[in-house]
Nucleic acid binder design. Structure first.
Lengths: 144, 144
DNA sequence: GTTAAATCCTATTGATTTGGTAGACATTAA
DNA sequence: TTAATGTCTACCAAATCAATAGGATTTAAC
């Protein structure tokens, strides 16, 4: 399951995608519109900024805005940043690989194969889920 | 990520699949062979038994053994039992559905779609990953 | 240059989950 | 009767998650 932090991050990014190229949006507004605790959101946006997904402008009239085009930001990257590995086993993770203590021998482990398939399918879907596609879908579904 | 409990359960089941129709295997043996803390394994096997995945025999000469054929036990069921939902969002889970607090309106949520696809792909792969296939793979890979 | 509005940063907290342990009890084979 | 085994309830420590507190810093506007 995705953490709340990750879900908040996704919702905040979608919101900023809707405001793309309209200047900085401040935390307070995102927090209110998306019902996210402001202080928690603060930490999340900061993390997204440090990962170069967002830019920020300090001081009066400041706020956050997308660093890249909505079509260049996908759920795979956001989830990896917020929650870490996408794979279901550490020993099949591409970005957060760790040896499985439980496996005596990774080469002959019979269960890894299925989880490698799951990982690849998942990455393909989430890698293709970009902010612009999410926005388009919401419009198509009639969101106001 | 799968919990340790879930990984232990899978390894224990694979071990019991290798001993299928050879009578009860006791906890101690599984714990030693698979390097699982005995007391923890005890609780896990009990849960698998309550879910009708295993049978047990009490008293001297007792132990655990598979309830069904190895070809009838798959990773999807084991994971659901041990860790709960397989889906990445509660609102797309088939067996553990819950409303997403974050979504104002599920019907118009633009992100659910990707997670439904991930869920379906994952279920298909894990549903097909049966104990007998895992055993065959281990043999093919040369496990001793 | 003062002030108000905003982000930035560090630390802390409470609740829940995870991983594991202790010990008594019940059942069965020999 | 006894030793071996599963069953059950309770407990505990550490980690993680979700959230909060309280300033420090930066900037625009006056």
């Amino acid at each position: 399951m995705l953490s709340k932090k990750c879900k908040y991050a996704i919702h905040a990014l979608v919101y900023l995608a809707e405001r793309y190229q309209e200047g900085p949006v401040h935390i307070q507004e995102i927090a209110e519109k998306k019902s996210i605790p402001k202080k928690f959101l603060e930490a999340i946006l900061l993390e997204l900024r440090n990962a170069k997904m967002l830019h920020s402008k300090k001081g009066k009239g400041g706020g956050y805005y997308l660093y890249q085009k909505p079509s260049d930001v996908n759920l795979m990257d956001v989830i990896r940043l917020m929650d870490g590995a996408i794979a279901m086993l550490p020993c099949v993770s591409l970005n957060y690989y760790e040896k499985c203590e439980e496996c005596r021998n990774e080469k002959t482990c019979g269960i890894r194969d299925s989880f490698i398939k799951v990982r690849d399918q998942t990455l393909e879907i989430l890698g293709g889920a970009t902010l612009d596609k999410i926005m388009k879908r919401e419009k198509a579904l009639g969101a106001k």
